[in-house]
Amino acid sequence: MAKLLEVQNLNKKYQSSQNEILALQDVNFYVNDGEFFSIIGPSGCGKSTLLSIIAGLEDKSSGEILIQGQKVNDISSKIGYMLQKDCLLEWRTILSNILFGLEIKGKINNETKSYAENLLKKYNLYEFKDKYPSELSGGMRQRVALIRTLAIKPKILLLDEAFSALDYQTRIMVTNDIYHILKEENITTIMVTHDISEAISMSDKVLVLTKRPGTVKKIHDIQFDIKDRSPINCRQNPEFTKYFDTLWRELGIDE
């Protein structure tokens, strides 16, 4: 498998009036094409900062980010980003919401529009295209937010605690839905989460960050001997508990 994204010797320092904080120190890892890659770590370890830097939303202090071997310093059109909240614009219809990214990029044409509409059809939201976000359930809203991101055809999708605002029941369903959408569309994904089970059930690899300054502690390969893998059937597999124990202990040692 080809390396799609590479992070090399990444450092991040924050300046405040009191002092200087080293948030990330010598972070190195790579993500292969088509992989689902999760980053977990204790709270305040800089995992969301790491994601923001990859997205180009924040500056790095030193190091390199490479996508398909090319250095990235800015907001790349190859990257899509999803936040914890769905951030749908309440004054726009669902259709107008999913076209928001294309509109900002000035890329609305018949081709991109029909691609976005097809995504709505494919994931059973087309009948709601003229409705407003307030008329949709939390899970549906999150799917709309995902389609808005996928409409710009990103190579890599970044999920920043994208499901933690949902209630537990919805969350399990939505992670399942979104996992299938991402596999279907063959999107490489990097997800930041504080939920160990969520990371194991969705990921091919899980990176554990240490507490601040965040640095890579270990990268685990997650493999299940299941034919049609899905987050829900992973949770029922005996391997799941083993992974959970390992990761849980690794996160705990620091504290």
């Binding site: 951030c87 900002i104 990029k105």
Partner: peptide
């Protein structure tokens, strides 16, 4: 204005005017 919504727009590389 919701900071997250502004962040969402920024992820699409929105200009300040947009």
């Amino acid at each position: 204005t919701d900071k997250d919504i502004i962040k969402m727009a920024k992820t699409f590389n929105a200009s300040k005017f947009q």
